[in-house]
Amino acid sequence: MGICTLPSLTASNSIKQRHTVEMAELTEAEKRRLLRERRQQKFSNGGASSRLNKITGQASSHLNAESPLDAPSIPTGTPVESSGVATPASKNDSSAAPQFDLLKQLAAMQGQGPGSGSGSPPDSSTPDLFSLLSSMNTGMPGAEGTPSLGQASPMAPINQAALDYHDYLLNKLKAWTILVKWVFFLLPYLFLLTRPNAAVWSAFAFAQSAWFAPLRNPSNFTTVFATFEFLSISIYYQLLKNVEHKSKIRNLQDTNKLVKLVSLVPEGMIPIPNLKGKIVTALQYWDLLSMLITDISFVLIMLGLLTYL
C-alpha cells in the first residue's frame, strides 16, 4: 500500500514551482516589459474611464469620470467646411505661417547663444537637444522632401452625406422663401396695385378696407416694398443661420474661388487684417443682396406683364 497522497495539492504545488522557475528565468528587462504591457492593457479599451468611475463611484463624487484615453480622437467643435475638408479653427489657420516663422527665427536665435554653436559635436550625456534646433540657423538644405500634401484627403462618406444634406436644406430654404414671397406676398400686392377693382377682390373683403388703403396707393409702393424686403431678408438670414448652426457647417468658406484664393495669401502680405473673414462676410451680404435684386427683377417683370395684359 503506498503513501496516501493528495494529487490536487501536489499538482498545484508543482504548477507554482514551475511559475517560480519561469519567473526566475525572466530577466529584469523582460519583467519590466511584461508589467508595462499589463499596465497598458488595463488602461485601454475603456478601462481608463472605468477606473475613474470606480474611484468617483466609491466616494459618491460628481467629478468628471471621462478619461482622455477613451475620448474620441476627432476634433470637437470644428466646423466642417462645405467643400468637405475638415480644417482647424480659423485662428490657427490664418496665423499658422507667421507662427512657424516666429518659431524658426526663435530657434535660429537660440543657436546664436554662447556655448551652443551649431558646430559643436553631439554630447553623449545630456543630449544637445537645443543645438538640434540651432542647426536650423545654418540653412541646411531641405529634408528628404515634403510629403505630398497638395491633394486634400478624400472626404469620409459620412461627412460628404452631411454636406449634401446641408446643401439640400439650404436650397430647400431658398426655394420656399422665394415661393412664399412671390406667390403669397409680391404677386397679390402687385395685382392689388395694378387692378384694385378686379372682381377677384370681392372674395377678399379685407383688401377693400381702409386698413389696406396705403397698400392700394401706388405712391407708397417704394415704402411698402422696401419694408417687406427688409423683413423677409432678415427672416431668411435668421433661418439660414439656424440651419448652419444645427448642421455645424459653414457655407462659402471653400466653395467660393475668391475665398480659396484669399486663403492662399499669407497673413501680413496685404495690409488688411483678417482679409478672409472680411471676404466671407462680404459674400454673405452679397447672397442677401442678390435675393433683393431677384425680387426687384420679379417685381419689374410682373408689373410689366400686369400692365400690358
Binding site: F100, G142, T146
Partner: peptide, 23 residues
C-alpha cells in the same frame, strides 16, 4: 516674400518636426 537667404522653408520645418520628434 520671406526675405533674403532664400531659405528652404519646407525643409526647415520638417527638420524642426524631426528634432521635436527626437526629443
Amino acid at each position: 516674400f520671406m526675405g533674403a537667404g532664400n531659405v528652404d522653408i519646407s525643409g526647415k520645418l520638417n527638420e524642426l518636426k524631426a528634432n521635436v520628434e527626437t526629443i
